[in-house]
Design a protein around this nucleic acid. Sequence first.
DNA 1: ACTCTGACTGAATATTTGCCCGTCTAATTG
DNA 2: CAATTAGACGGGCAAATATTCAGTCAGAGT
Lengths: 318, 318
Amino acid sequence: MSSAGDQETSRLDDAARAGWLYYVAGNTQDEIARKLGVSRQSAQRLVSLAVSEKLVKVWLDHPIARCMELSRDLADRFGLASCQVAPSDPDAPAALTGVAQLAAGDIERMLKSDHPKIIALGTGRALRASVEQLPKMDCPQHRIVSLLGNMMSDGAATPYNVVIRMADRVNARHYPMPLPVFARSMEEKLLLQQQEAVHNILELARQADVTYVGIGNIGDTAPLLVDGFVSREETRALIKAGAVGEITSWVFDRSGRLIDGLTNDRVASANLEVSPAKPVIAIAVGMLKVDAILAAMRGRLINGLITDEATAEHLLTH
Amino acid sequence: MSSAGDQETSRLDDAARAGWLYYVAGNTQDEIARKLGVSRQSAQRLVSLAVSEKLVKVWLDHPIARCMELSRDLADRFGLASCQVAPSDPDAPAALTGVAQLAAGDIERMLKSDHPKIIALGTGRALRASVEQLPKMDCPQHRIVSLLGNMMSDGAATPYNVVIRMADRVNARHYPMPLPVFARSMEEKLLLQQQEAVHNILELARQADVTYVGIGNIGDTAPLLVDGFVSREETRALIKAGAVGEITSWVFDRSGRLIDGLTNDRVASANLEVSPAKPVIAIAVGMLKVDAILAAMRGRLINGLITDEATAEHLLTH
DNA sequence: ACTCTGACTGAATATTTGCCCGTCTAATTG
DNA sequence: CAATTAGACGGGCAAATATTCAGTCAGAGT
């Protein structure tokens, strides 16, 4: 038995040596084989043994490393097809620049494709900031379609008109939705959606190859409330019904199920549909949004996420 | 200028991402290229940039039995407070990579301390190689001080200017010594050392929390001779007086006692003082240096040693 | 405005690595 | 003692990686 133990340790020792020569000294496996007096193949086995026995530890000495780790953990935990985490600026935790750049990079990659794509967009400050980061491009092959109306109920234009801004920058055909965000009633909503133009836009949205949306929280600081789309009373009613977040004004509860009735009866936005093959990517940052993001992920309302380090940490500890 | 910096950091960010995906997540470079939206070659370049910028750290978590044994034996036999032995590359026994990495790890540990430290440095190829292995850091709390002049007698700069190189990499305050290594006479030496700046630097060196030095041999291959600091005649005289090695140009005999007179009268370097509480660590590799290292240890001119396997073996058999 | 320089890129190519598979050895078992 | 089998070995090959080379582009300096 003692000889078995010795052989074992000497084998690991050799593995360590091989691993050292390979990873630290930068030798090729061929050279290692010569130096250790074994065949090339054996050297390869020793190196891979060193790896599989966890003798070699690799880590990255760069702030980005933490972000990569967080994104992998988030993707694993919530079954996301893609997840990106931007470094937070510790001085300005609510800053959007990091995520905006990341999102812009993602969008740009899509746009660079020669194959025509339909890109659907929600609204929100984060999405708006991302679009601002896009370089000027020329992409007449793609179509950009809005997921939700661009009017207040009184006909005023909504802020953050992302579709037009983006189409401006990248010169693509675009389809803003000429509707109020909320109709005054379910009947009106159905009526409005039967217009041919609107119908076509909704159909286009349904076919989108990729979708980018923001996520809103519900409560005193909710974008829906602050921007005047829903009243304080409606907000109270929504909270009572369990609402924690919204995507393109569709309000959902903490397991990501759409709230029945209330404002959801009147939302004119395209339906939230996620097929596993089509990315639906949320861009969302901030402590206030943690619950909403969690809910959206639980309910599979999204299958991709772009956020920042601080938010990611909170998502994983909740 | 700020845009240049931004571009630089974003390039390093990308490199870190690529490195992480490659070494930590085990992606293939092809996959990385797809994920980062660049070509395969660019991905490869990013990965190798991450390596050359020292963003990826590899560390073998296995005490290679022989090296551990050697370092323990050395520490016991010569009363060293610390001793590290790197595996040797059998084909390139003079290679510095192993010890350089070990030493860099040691130095990095020092630098990571928040508590301000004074780090004193000698010169030499090994020390230089070690400093090259340091990652970029930001350590304004520490001070790096040179133990010896950085000029030839005629005013030319000496090679291996370790202090400046290191300060460059880690962004610390630094104190190179604006003196020739050897004065022309003892009188001139005293005169030079009375300059206020020099005086302050010598005082700083005396207070150093940790000291790293190289060890040179004496003879035909002596760094002092090869680099032109002492003449062939002086070398002969030194050998006749029993000299076997030098640290920061202080020449000593085989029991580690400083040689009286000769070049030692004119050395402008800080005095060799070792207090048991403050590490004085030599980085030295090679057969030629064995006698010098032995002498330095016998004379307690150092209390720590970083060397390689082959050298360690010789140190123990002599 | 012009060239020059240096850095970067993709394509082509050379090298290295990972893996499958047939063979061999040595240990175990009936 | 013979048969069986687990495990290591090395050959060979496809995949992955590194390097070289020529072309491109932006910016610096006439």
